[in-house]
């Protein structure tokens, strides 16, 4: 698939698209095309092979069954893992963070092997974490607050090779203390909203990784207004 456009793979939207995850791909595409960087979304559906030539892979959230099926499919068609080995950019949301790790253990105590892309393990927590999340950047990776909506039962423990994305101020995240994971150019988060419409600085970070250049400014007043509103709703001033 040789093209001069930045290709954004929307991975298994028909299995892992439960929480508007299409939005993350749209935000990446528009933030590039509006700045004159040609970009396109490539839908990779269940039953189809996964290409290894894309520049950014976006993996969303899904129900338990869908998650198991997705792992099976991504193992049978390891295009994304091959792309990761050559440094492609990957965003994993919710189920994404769980299936990218070494393993995930469900509420029924059955442990499933993950894709081994990040140094983490996940297990089912006692209660479902549902609600607004506010977190501050870890390791100076991005600016401003991270905001989103979480809805998950999984808890994630990071190993030494993975760094947290942020420190939780409001909400649960991985474990009540840190949120998400970063390892190389793989970025994971539990946050929906979806996460990139709410956090343009994270979208631009992924674009920078993919294109090798920091993208220019892009002022979207509605996005700024939304970030202020959601932070206020969570009791935090931005």
């Amino acid at each position: 698939m040789s093209t001069n456009k930045v290709q954004i793979a929307l991975v298994l939207p028909d299995l892992l698209g439960t929480y508007g995850d299409f939005g993350n791909a749209v935000v990446l595409e528009k933030r590039m095309t509006w700045r004159g960087i040609p970009a396109e979304i490539v839908n990779i559906r269940f039953g189809e092979p996964v290409p290894e030539s894309c520049d950014i892979y976006v993996v969303g959230g899904g129900e338990d069954t869908a998650q198991t099926l997705a792992v099976r499919h991504l193992r049978d068609h390891p295009g994304m893992q091959r792309a990761a080995a050559r440094g492609a950019v990957i965003l994993g949301v919710c189920a994404g963070i769980q299936i990218f790790g070494e393993s995930f253990t469900r509420a029924d105590q059955v442990t499933h092997p993950g894709l081994g892309l990040i140094d983490s393990t996940s297990h089912a927590g006692g209660s479902r974490a549902i609600g607004e999340v506010i977190a501050t950047p870890a390791g100076g990776l991005f600016e401003g607050l991270l905001t989103g909506f979480e809805n998950h039962q999984g808890r994630t423990v990071l190993g030494p090779s993975a760094q947290p994305l942020a420190h939780v101020k409001v909400g649960t995240g991985n474990d009540g203390s840190v949120e998400g994971a970063v390892q190389g150019r793989i970025l994971c988060t539990y946050l929906h909203g979806p996460v990139l419409p709410r956090n343009p600085q994270i979208a631009d970070l992924l674009i920078e990784w993919a294109t090798g250049a920091k993208p220019g400014p892009l002022d979207l007043p509605d996005v700024t207004r939304l970030r202020t509103e959601r932070a206020k709703a969570a009791g935090v001033s931005l």
Binding site: G20, D21, G23, F149, N151, H192, G193
Partner: peptide
């Protein structure tokens, strides 16, 4: 309470 669905 989760408005993620707006993107669908």
């Amino acid at each position: 309470r989760d408005l993620s669905w707006l993107w669908d």
